[in-house]
Design a protein around this nucleic acid. Structure first.
Lengths: 333, 333
DNA sequence: CTGTTAGCGCTTTCAC
DNA sequence: GTGAAAGCGCTAACAG
């Protein structure tokens, strides 16, 4: 015997009021006499009535859900942002539809489409690069879009980040001050704006300001993964680098382990600094010095920004930059 | 000028057919003449019509979304399952609503409620323990529930797991064969069925079968976290353990690092085996021996099972157990 | 403070 | 093969 779902109409009838009144008490509208409100509440309780969010969404044109596009939940960096997003979303009574894109442009576009089909009220995008198509999809979207921990070359999309250029600049400067002049820059694909226009820029600026010539051979592009980093050892050694700045913690762990596994002493013969401040930086031996950044907060603030956008509130600033720091651990002198 | 959304009605009018026909072509119904189908398709394209999933959900009583309750996306173990879930969900045209519970009973219940309010077609639950209230909520739910990587003491809820007892049994036996007779059992709260009824059981059974007396003082309950593990060193040493089986990789890394940081040689003086086969096991030094388990697949199979349940298909077996293995790395002899 | 009445955009019989 | 019409369960004017 399949239990028929109880609707707003059922409780209206049972309570001898109109649907409108039931709707009012359910939605906390003040214009209801206390007595009737109680009466309705009782019936709701008795019937175990639960509002159907889908019907509500159709009628109100608000789904109280936001879409989240993430490269891969399995990546601690993005997962940390996602956690911040979900917490703030929950706080504001939104749910999250999560879709993994693997940073694949086609899948990002597909996600945008299904998310919009599901009438999400807003979208948070995390990704390494924003294609032109994607950008135009963002623009067309009736749901506002906010970038979290992701850089937009055009600079027009609301976003929450840290100042990647400045962060890398500081860290490289630190490495230089430690006496290094052959510092590797290890990152994912340089075609990505975040790597090319910000991090690499910071790296170059630091070298320039220190009067150290920039060498292309010290750029190492690879998979953003542990194994991607691990595979770099020979090339690194051949180029006689004495230090490296790495843009991802998994990748950094790979680089460092490949060195220590080969008998290289860290930080004695090789210094390493990484970028994402995930808990992995404390789990490796030696522990890894890193740029610190409030991962959770980047997600949280992005979601908060999105709530404002969804409410058409005035925004002081479209692009917010959260403070970063430098944490010295064992992998640098 | 806010663009009015184009509806099925618009394309019907424009194509000189009824809404019903448009609906048919959108849904791939065969009963449409090829010519009219083409005509409709053209208009859809021209108008850039996109079906409203919410309206569709209300009319069809199917939302094509499933709810996923996860303790914390930030935990690689669960995140890996979540990834498997999402991939299979996507394959079957479902989206995922993700909610973090922190394993908190109250929040799990809240999530169940909002998920059902949103009319999800099914629910995947990951969690360390299932309270009675939760179990009854599962039973009341019109959306089928499947557990992923989570144990149900009552044994009635569909689930996908590995045989935790057997896995721990094998690993402990291995440690015994390496000559250890003071083996620590390190886990999260023992009130959790998965720890008490399965893993601890496997530990005890292995000792018994090897004729080694069971000692309560070798049980170490703590936070399931790196720091929780790290904090255990003194107690471990005081109890003169020579090996440990740990039920979580972060926790295991903590235990191991606390030992090596104190100058204890691993595996020389202390052997360690862990349980979850996350990539962390390869990132620590020494690398950690572990139970191997198909994390992604546990999620994937759970989602597949759920699709069958949602379609009222016949299920051969409610509880599926995926194969596990043992991977020897550097932390054991 | 409360009820009436239209929809929201789509699916789904039921006819033709 | 196609159309008409009745909802799905709820919100939102509007009227009183």
């Amino acid at each position: 015997m399949k239990k028929q779902n109880v609707t707003i109409y059922d409780v209206a009838r049972e309570a001898n009021v109109s649907m409108a009144t039931v709707s009012r008490v359910v939605n906390g509208n003040q214009n209801v006499k206390d007595a009737t409100k109680q009466k309705v509440l009782n019936i709701i309780d008795k019937l175990d009535y639960r509002p159907n969010a889908v019907a509500r969404g159709l009628a109100s044109k608000k789904s109280t859900t936001v879409g989240v596009i993430i490269p891969n939940v399995t990546n601690t960096y993005f997962a940390s942002l996602a956690r911040g997003i979900d917490d703030i979303a929950t706080m504001y009574k939104y749910n999250i539809i999560l879709t993994n894109s693997d940073g694949n442009n086609q899948r990002e576009l597909t996600s945008m489409n299904t998310l919009q089909a599901k009438q999400v009220d807003g979208i948070i995008f995390m990704g390494n690069e924003i294609s032109e198509e994607l950008r135009s999809e963002f623009k067309k979207s009736r749901a506002p879009v906010v970038l979290a921990g992701s850089v937009d070359a055009s600079g027009k999309i609301p976003s929450v980040n840290i100042d990647y250029r400045q962060a890398v600049y500081s860290e490289v400067t630190n490495l230089i001050n430690n006496g290094n002049d052959r510092i590797a820059f290890v990152s994912g694909p340089l075609e990505r704006s975040i790597n090319k226009d910000f991090r690499l820029k910071g790296y170059k600026d630091a070298l320039t300001d220190a009067g150290i010539p920039y060498e292309k051979s010290l750029l190492f592009e690879t998979d953003v993964s542990y194994s991607g980093g691990y595979a770099l050892r020979e090339r690194l050694q051949k180029n006689e680098v004495t230090a490296a700045i790495v843009t991802d913690d998994d990748m950094a762990a790979g680089v460092m382990n490949s060195m220590t596994d080969d008998g290289v002493s860290v930080p004695g013969e090789f210094e390493l600094a990484t970028s994402n401040d995930t808990k992995l930086t404390e789990m490796t031996r030696p522990t890894m010095s890193t740029i610190t950044q409030p991962l959770y907060d980047v997600g949280a603030v992005a979601m908060r920004l999105l709530t404002k956008l969804m409410n058409n509130e005035d925004i002081e600033e479209n692009k917010v930059f959260l403070p970063f720091g430098l944490k010295k651990r064992e992998s640098t002198k």
